[in-house]
Amino acid sequence: MKFRAFAAVAAGALLATTLNVVPAQAGGSSSHDSTATVKNVATLIDGLTGPLRVAHGPGGNILVAESFAGLLSSVSPNGTKKVFASSPGNELAAVSYTGGTTYYFENLAAPAEDPTALAPALLKTIDKKGKTRTLTDLTKWEVKLNPDGKTVYGVRKAPQSCLDQAPWMQSSGEVYSHPYATAVARNKIYVADAGGNTLWKVDSRGKASVLKVLPAEPVVIDQAIVAWAAEAGLDVPECMLGRTYWVQPVPTDLEVRGDWLYYSVLPGAPGENFAKGKVYKLNLNSKKSYVVASGLSAPTGIALDDRGTVFVTELFGNGVSKIVKGKAVNVLPAALASDVDISGNKLAVSTNALAPSGEVVTGTLKYGRR
Score class of each variant (00 low, 15 high):
L199W: 08
G233H: 01
Q160E: 13
P147Y: 08
Y190A: 09
Y263Q: 04
Y262V: 14
S177H: 00
Q248W: 07
A192D: 10
V219G: 12
V250Q: 01
P159A: 05
N197F: 03
Q160I: 08
P167A: 03
E272N: 09
G242F: 12
Q160N: 11
Y245V: 04
T252E: 14
Y263L: 08
Y262M: 11
L241K: 15
M169Y: 04
G242N: 08
A229F: 11
Y153T: 00
L199I: 13
V250K: 01
V213E: 06
N197S: 15
D253Y: 06
V236E: 03
N187Y: 09
A158V: 11
V250M: 08
V236H: 01
L214E: 01
P249F: 03
L266G: 01
K207A: 07
Y176W: 07
A232P: 07
N197K: 00
D203F: 10
V184T: 14
S264K: 10
A232C: 09
E231V: 09
A158W: 01
P218M: 06
V220D: 13
L241R: 15
D259W: 14
P251I: 03
Q165H: 05
E231K: 13
L199C: 12
W260I: 14
T182N: 05
V247G: 11
D253P: 06
E217K: 05
L145R: 11
G196C: 03
D222I: 12
P167W: 05
R186A: 15
G271E: 02
D164N: 04
K207T: 10
M169R: 12
D193N: 03
T244F: 09
A183M: 13
V191T: 12
R205I: 02
D203T: 12
P267K: 06
P270A: 07
W228M: 07
E255Q: 15
K201M: 14
S171N: 02
G195L: 01
V210Y: 01
V256W: 13
K201P: 00
V191L: 11
V213Y: 10
V202P: 02
N197G: 07
W228V: 09
P218R: 07
W168V: 10
N197H: 13
K157A: 15
W168G: 11
G154L: 02
D235H: 13
R257K: 14
I225C: 00
Y176Q: 05
K188W: 14
V175Q: 00
